[in-house]
């Protein structure tokens, strides 16, 4: 019973919303445009730093959000400038390298005053002004089966904001992917030379997609940071790979794929850990080993998904017929 409660709790947690957001961003990159961005965690980390540092230094929330968005947009522009003309797998290597650079810089002692180096920025340093705005009571609140604190950290307030943001971004994805703009991006995903021959500036469209997806990633970073803290090492390569896994799980290029994927991913991670600790005796798999055990399964899931069901749960089976 506890396990089911844990799963339900995880299914709506701010982390889940943050990953759904990051995956929506990645959906703009990969699902719509076919860009292999392997550095989504870098965009998230920039968003976190941008918001947390601005607010810590006394800036208002709106300024923090703008700084976060601006950081991600500039990062996207710098990253896209040399790489969007290169073949897909080079973009993958450059984005992953750039994201790691952001992390190394963030945890560098040289920037200790700004980023707090490898310890990061404590939640109390930047969460205050956001939590002040909470319309919920400053205590535990139970709604249906869920109990969360009203305002602090993993709170109802953050849940409402996070999922509202998810809904808004879904709406945006839906509107844009069904527009002529989205049509050009899909064309690029299929064959950029064809789109070029039809008179569209492919480079500019790829850049737009990279920046939009990255900015959504930065928003995801803010939601994550407000639920936890800013910690550079939590935004390493594995985080990007998880986002990829959950996007492919839900279904790339579908509207609800990222959200479904995120809920399933985090829900089943809790489920696997819970079931494993129930069913496998402590002597075989102690609590310390649960985490790597379940993440091993994540890796295997990613492999199986790509091999056997690349269109994910919500994807169109027909699209598989021509994998050329």
């Amino acid at each position: 019973m506890d396990l089911i409660y844990d799963i339900l709790r995880e299914a709506i947690a701010p982390t889940t919303a943050a990953f759904a957001l990051a995956a929506i961003g990645l959906n703009f990159h990969f699902g719509l445009t076919g860009l292999l961005n392997m550095g989504q965690a870098g965009f998230m980390l920039l968003g976190m730093y941008g918001y947390a540092i601005t607010v810590r230094e006394g800036g208002p929330i709106w300024l923090g959000v703008i700084v976060a968005i601006a950081c991600a947009a500039v990062f996207g522009l710098i990253l896209g400038w040399p790489t969007l003309k290169l073949r897909g797998d080079y973009l993958a290597i450059v984005t992953i390298a750039a994201a790691e650079m952001i992390r190394y810089l963030g945890r560098s002692q040289n920037l200790n005053d700004l980023t707090g180096a490898s310890t990061g920025i404590r939640g109390n340093d930047f969460k205050g002004s956001f939590e002040m705005l909470s319309p919920f009571p400053d205590s535990q609140v139970t709604f249906l089966v869920w109990t969360f604190h009203g305002t602090r950290s993993t709170s109802w307030w953050l849940l409402v904001v996070g999922w509202t943001l998810v809904a808004l971004m879904l709406l945006m994805y839906w509107r844009l992917s069904k527009s002529p703009w989205g049509r050009v991006l899909k064309g690029i995903r299929e064959d950029e030379d064809a789109v070029r021959s039809l008179g569209k500036n492919v480079y500019s469209y790829k850049m737009q997609a990279l920046v939009i997806g990255g900015v959504i990633g930065a928003l995801a970073g803010i939601i994550w940071a407000l639920g936890a803290s800013v910690q550079p090492d939590s935004m390493g390569r594995p985080t990007t790979f998880w986002i990829w896994t959950l996007l492919l799980l839900g279904g790339a290029a579908t509207i609800f794929g990222p959200v479904l994927g995120s809920i399933l991913f985090w829900g089943s991670l809790v489920a696997v850990k819970g079931l494993a600790s129930l069913l496998i005796p402590e002597t075989l798999l102690n609590t310390q080993e649960l985490e790597p055990f379940s993440l091993t399964l994540v890796g295997i899931t990613l492999m199986c998904l790509v091999i056997f069901r690349p269109q994910g749960i919500l994807g169109d089976k027909k699209e598989l017929a021509f994998n050329d």
């Binding site: 527009s179 002529p180 703009w181 989205g182 049509r183 064809a194 021959s197 569209k200 737009q208 021509f322």
Partner: peptide, 30 residues
């Protein structure tokens, strides 16, 4: 270079020029 995972009609529409909806900001307002 047929764009495989797009419908035939979408392929055709992509060929048209002067589409204001291909601008990111205009695309929001149908």
């Amino acid at each position: 270079k047929a764009l495989s995972r797009m419908t035939v009609l979408e392929n055709m529409r992509l060929g048209a020029s002067d589409q204001s909806g291909e601008n990111f900001f205009v695309a929001f307002a149908k």
